[in-house]
Design a protein around this nucleic acid. Structure first.
Lengths: 196, 196
DNA sequence: CTTTGCAGAGTGAATGTTCACTTACTTGAT
DNA sequence: ATCAAGTAAGTGAACATTCACTCTGCAAAG
């Protein structure tokens, strides 16, 4: 359900992303959004019915972008290579769209409404959809450990990733997330790989 | 710096915790706090100078409580036992004070001020202060893996813990955190322990 | 080719609500 | 009589949203 977005709508959700980066959740107001767009507050409502719709559009756009990128990771490679590619792709994405990191945590983005929670859930599921089978395949082929379940492995990996993003964000995006991410991938792999 | 809190002040920060649980960051308003206390809004200000002070008091109280509990984990036991005790204690604490889980994420609790950030930092450091040496000792004694650095191990462990808490909270505290926590501890230990 | 009319995209001013916080007053216990 | 702890009734600021309106480009009708 990739809802079509007009040019202006795209500009607005990009501006919203920039605001999130520069001034956090509290900075994402219609007033600031209008200022960022260099037009009046009321003009926003020519393009979106409500602030909620803007946030949902942003989250949906984010999910679609990530999905699109993850979708064409070759299915032929071995699990370890796929694992690496999966996370490298994500670190690359957030490196070029740092504002969306705030949305990843997206806790208290707004008074949590039905629609927003749904959009967040979709976002999490996109990641799961691609990570889960890679881990399972790796376990079946004996390259990843079978000492704990797939779910437990995924939990640990996702937690590690989320914390990495959290640190990057609270450090105001000052360090190189692709380099640090590379290290994270390496240490996680070291931990979950079966010893030869 | 365990600032003395009056009885009323304690009641207020507990009410604040309850509000956080039931209605999230956005629900923590002076109006709601007053209603929860069966008070007028202005009465709050007899006990705290500002909302910021309430939040700081809450975070400080939280840090102190955790510190107190973690402090008397026997230093004699082996690293694995200490690791277990450390997390069991935390799961036990949050099980009896579920409202404070929200504060663990403590992101966007309020327009981030100097004092609040400081209190959050202190909270993170309490955990670090007790976890770090346990991991290091375990590595030195060869019971935990040396394949990756202490920092990387701690990162993975903390990320896993945080995500566990996040899941508990978004599940509205419906599942048994002590039981699930036990499983989490077990699978993390399985992963980080050296094979015999 | 000009006129008519309409739609898309903008405006400033105002709406009602909620927020943290203040002021002036009251009460009951020591 | 003092004073800690309460109250009612406000304040101004910020918020999302709505209102009546203007401007501009375009397409059909005369």
């Amino acid at each position: 359900m990739t809802t079509e977005l007009s040019e202006r709508q795209q500009e607005i959700i990009e501006a919203a992303g920039r605001l999130l980066t520069s001034s956090g959740v509290g900075g994402l107001t219609i007033k600031n959004l209008a200022k960022e767009m260099k037009f009046s507050e009321s003009a926003i409502y020519r393009h979106f019915a409500s602030k909620e719709e803007i946030i949902i559009a942003m989250l949906t756009f984010l999910a679609d972008s990530i999905e699109q990128r993850l979708a064409h990771i070759p299915g032929s490679a071995d699990p370890e290579a796929k694992f690496k590619a999966l996370f490298e792709e994500q670190f690359r994405f957030f490196n070029s769209h740092p504002h969306f990191v705030v949305a990843v945590f997206s806790d208290g983005l707004m008074k949590e409404t039905e629609g927003i929670n749904e959009a967040i859930l979709k976002l999490i599921n996109v990641k799961m959809k691609y990570l889960m089978p890679v881990i399972m395949e790796g376990q079946q082929k004996g390259v990843f450990t079978n000492a704990i379940t797939t779910e437990e492995l995924v939990h640990i990996i996702m937690g590690t990733f989320k914390l990495q993003m959290f640190k990057w964000r609270t450090a105001n995006f000052q360090f190189d997330i692709q380099r640090n991410g590379e290290n994270m991938i390496h240490s996680v792999l070291t931990l979950i790989k079966n010893k030869k």
